[in-house]
Design a protein around this nucleic acid. Structure first.
Length: 311
RNA sequence: GGCGUCGUAGCUCAGUUGGUAGAGCAGAGGACUGAAAAUCCUUGUGUCACUGGUUCAAUUCCAGUCGAUGCCA
């Protein structure tokens, strides 16, 4: 393992500890935070929500009591929250944290959220949710070709580069064009920002077959720990984006009698594996990541290697 | 034991009026900047159960064997 950073020591550093779901980020981040006597920022887009605890594998009360965590269950599923708000929240917090600590840890598996913190984000107005709903309805009433045509008229440049089969991309572009009166392709341009601190990117990993085993076991444990009741209590909110989440949507389908409980559980495992795969695709693309296979590395050995670099 | 149905990709199954076969799911790879645990794209050669027979040619027709399943005894 090589973690290279010329100015790592004595410098404000954000240590990003990511990896596919189920790899063991939470435990390793806590061990590292204890050793560095610092705090943890979560960048997990589903652990933000206080109502979703079991199904998102949020850190336990015991884990939370060991190290101060931020952005874990700080929002409600009924709140609107997005990457821009997250970026703002994180930077406000980092001002405080870097005043006390030279190293701060950020852990979680939401690749886009990590990238926003590292590179910044274009200046756009906040989403107009009424307009979003209206556009969504137009899409479901008139189909994909209709919104494609609309985009062709409003922003030809983006039309030519966007993935035209992806309705979400098209809808977002239309939303911005209509809301601002400016082309999305124009307004979204931005230069990657230089952050006033160093960033170290570490991706924890294990063999895929082992990740799969861990995902299966974790899912079974979630069921034992009461995921079904948790999902039941959130059933009436199933239309919310926060609940378009692995572990919940499959159980909602079971509650709706579209499948058996066993089928739902298998589907959770499958969808979690697929999520882990998409995460790995995301992380592979960013060559700044140092990959650490932790399968045969005790947390002590892991820390030892990491800390040697940091000191 | 008798009669019938079935045995095709990891799974569920199509199909070939005889010219060696294709969907869905899974798996694999990829995209991604205010929905991101979301959303989307690409990707299917397998002794067509086995052994014989008929035929220029059999996964397809015929016989037998094995396995599954149903009905009758």
């Amino acid at each position: 393992m090589t973690i290279s950073s010329s100015n790592f020591a004595d410098k404000k550093t954000l240590i990003i500890l990511t990896g596919p779901t189920g790899v063991g980020k939470t435990e390793y981040a806590i061990e590292l935070a204890k050793r560095l006597k610092t705090e943890i920022i979560s960048c997990d887009s589903r652990q933000f929500y206080k109502e979703m605890s079991i199904g998102t594998a949020a850190p336990s009360q015991k884990q939370l009591s060991q190290v101060k965590h931020h952005f874990i269950q700080h929002k409600s599923i009924v709140d609107y929250y997005n990457i821009s708000m997250f970026e703002k929240d994180v930077f406000e917090l980092l001002n405080t944290l870097f005043a006390k600590h030279s190293k701060v840890i950020m852990t979680g598996g939401s690749g886009l959220y990590i990238d926003i913190i590292c590179n910044g984000i274009a200046q756009l107005p906040d989403a107009d949710l009424e307009l979003r709903t209206k556009l969504k309805n137009e899409y479901s009433n008139n189909g994909l070709a209709y919104i494609q045509n609309l985009l062709q008229k409003l922003d030809f440049e983006y039309f030519e580069t966007v993935d035209l089969s992806n309705p979400n991309r098209i809808l977002r572009a239309l939303e911005v064009c209509m809301q601002t009166g400016t082309k999305y392709s124009e307004i979204r341009k931005f230069e990657a920002l230089k952050r006033p601190f160093a960033i170290e990117k570490i991706c924890l990993t294990r063999e895929k077959s082992i990740i799969d085993q861990r995902i299966n076991a974790r899912t079974d444990n979630m069921i034992k720990d009461g995921l079904i009741d948790e999902a039941k209590s959130l059933y009436s909110f199933k239309g919310l984006q926060a609940l378009n989440t692995v572990g919940y949507k499959e159980l909602f389908s079971y509650f709706d009698e579209n499948c058996s409980l066993n089928e739902a559980i298998e589907k959770i495992k499958t969808n979690t594996r697929r999520y882990a795969k998409r995460q790995l695709t995301w992380f592979r693309k960013d060559e700044k990541y140092v990959w650490v296979d932790i399968e045969n590395l005790s947390s002590e050995e892991f820390l030892h290697k990491l800390i040697n670099r940091i000191k």
